[in-house]
Amino acid sequence: MVDTPRISTPPPPSASRPTSAARRFIRRNGLQLGIVGVMVLLWLFYLSFAPTVFASENIYRAFMQSVPFFGIVALPLTMLVIARDIDLSFPSIMAISVTAFVLINQATGSIIIAFAACLLVGFLVGLLNGVIVVGIGLPALIATIGTQFFWRGMVQVITNGRSFALNDLRGDPLRELLVGRLFGFVPMQMIWMIAAAVLVWLLLNRHRFGAHVYLIGDNENSARLMGINVGRTRVLLFGLVGLAAGFAGLLTALDISNFFTNLGEGYLLIGLAAVFLGGTSVFGGTGTVFGTFIGCFIIASIQPAVVAIGWSGFTTQVIYGFVIVLSVAMHTFLRSRLRLS
């Protein structure tokens, strides 16, 4: 296709862009400011409608305890979505990694070796997703829904549907480090989620890897022409999501001292919803770690709020669904607007 030659000289860049430092800050961080605004508004709403629940510290402790179970996966998942890929198999990766943990722990009696095996299995299964999607070129959505069922089936076959009590790990230093309580109050998994957020933020915003992630999601062809190793970056992203899923899966199992074969199943929707609510576009190229981090807590706050306010519990799931639809629709709208301008 041939571009129509431009007849008129385009105006110099200075002509139509008045700005100030404050406006520039708002424009550059608009989405992040927006999501903080949403969070504050919601919080005020909760406080006025369900003061007994939201004025007590218990609810915040509950958030810190349960949000990291999916939040730790949502963080690297954000990078993957920015690179215009997706992974629907992370709930199953959580389960297969913990299966590895349980089996190795039983076989060796060493929680450290089992921990390493758990992370390794998560990472490798994630890499395998990457190889299937990138190397073979299958659409990520189809391929990872396939691997989601594959690994879930594998977990069921290996464990034969049994659950495993992990009570005897109570008091183990590693368990304390992963899901204990800091100063007797702060759940350690929250510390891990903050650590994961900092790591992912550094990787995405301050490292060459992250620069490539943005470029690939924005314009894969350009990235390839400019010599970026697109395939390796994408495969590695899948691996990182897998690694995080393995870690988060273990936190989940250790926290409740039990491993069920359907571990992780409820996290698919809220994990994705947190990413999209956080302002990451399904079309790739944009998105922030900060947005996802806040998004995780907003998503998690919906259920207790709905219950506390006295609506029926099922409203929660409907809201999750609408969050996804709305953020997808918003990005579609923004894109069509931007293309026209």
């Binding site: 997706i86 994705l272 999750y320 669904g321 609408f322 639809v325 997808v328 990005h331």
Partner: peptide
């Protein structure tokens, strides 16, 4: 991708 995610959300809702 947007359509798939949205139809998935529909299933959930």
């Amino acid at each position: 991708g947007a359509a798939v995610i949205a139809t998935f959300a529909l299933l959930v809702i």
